[in-house]
Structures are given as C-alpha cells and as structure tokens.
Amino acid sequence: MFDFLGLKKKTSKTKIMVVDDEPNIVQTLRDRLEMNEYEVVTAGNGKEGLERFEEEHPDVILLDVIMPIMDGHEMLEALRKRPAGQNVSVIMLTARSQTQDIARANVCGIDDYIVKPFDLSELLEKIESVVENRSAVAR
C-alpha cells in the first residue's frame, strides 16, 4: 500500500520457507507463491524447519504455531538464538485472536502475522511489504 520507496520490482527471486504440519495448506501455499515468482521450500514441523533453514537460508519464513514435535514458538526462539537466524523475516500463521501467541512471538521478533483462515491475497500483500521493508533496511 505504501510503496514509498518504489521497490515493487523484484531483482532476484525471494526465497520463502513454509513451515506447517498440514500438507494441504503447505501445498496450496507453495502453488500460489510459486505462481507469484517466489522460490518455495517447505518443512512439516519446527525441528525440520530449523534443519531446512540451515540448508536453504530463506529470506522469509511463514511459520505455523501449532505443530507436532516442535511448535512455531519453539522454532522461532531457537532460530533467533542463531547468528544466521537473526535477520530472517518471519510471518506467523496463527489462529484468530490468540493474542498471547502474537505477544510471545513479538518478544523474539516477528515481522507480521496472519490469522487463519486467511485470504491468500492478503498473505501475499503481507509478504510483499515484509520483503519491501527488508530491501529498505538493507539499503
């Protein structure tokens, strides 16, 4: 909405990691993101997410909260303790009005959150603005 820096054009493909335990949701997200010229990697829980993070170095992580083995909060906390994990942008996918979720995630630093069930176009807008902010800060 505020393209004040005129950064809409993407120079290279932004890499997004989707961490969610619901295969259907992961699939629909992957399809849509890829159609929008993003590179997509996926993980089924927090533990897998941390492993994939080290291999792939994504720019943005879409992170579900409730997952088996390791949930979104635990992954975020672990991620922020790593040097490489400090600067990655995180958008939380949370159940509605779980404000404690957001408050807890905010302590570790998240860039944005979206409430399930969400509108994909709304999510795309959020991703876009997070990516814009990254470029602005990088400059």
Binding site: E22, N24, I25, T28, L29, D31, R32, M35, I66, A95, R96, K116, P117, F118, D119, L120, S121
Partner: peptide, 21 residues
C-alpha cells in the same frame, strides 16, 4: 484449531483456482 485448519485449506484451494494456478 481443528475447525480452522480444514477451512484454511479449502479457502486456499479455492483462492488458488480463482487465481488461475
């Protein structure tokens, strides 16, 4: 959580089909 997860999946699928994915 249980109600929203399938709904999210349905909504995403519909949205993707509408977006010509």
């Amino acid at each position: 959580h249980e109600l929203r997860t399938p709904l999210t999946s349905i909504q995403n699928s519909v949205s993707n089909i509408l977006a010509d994915v």
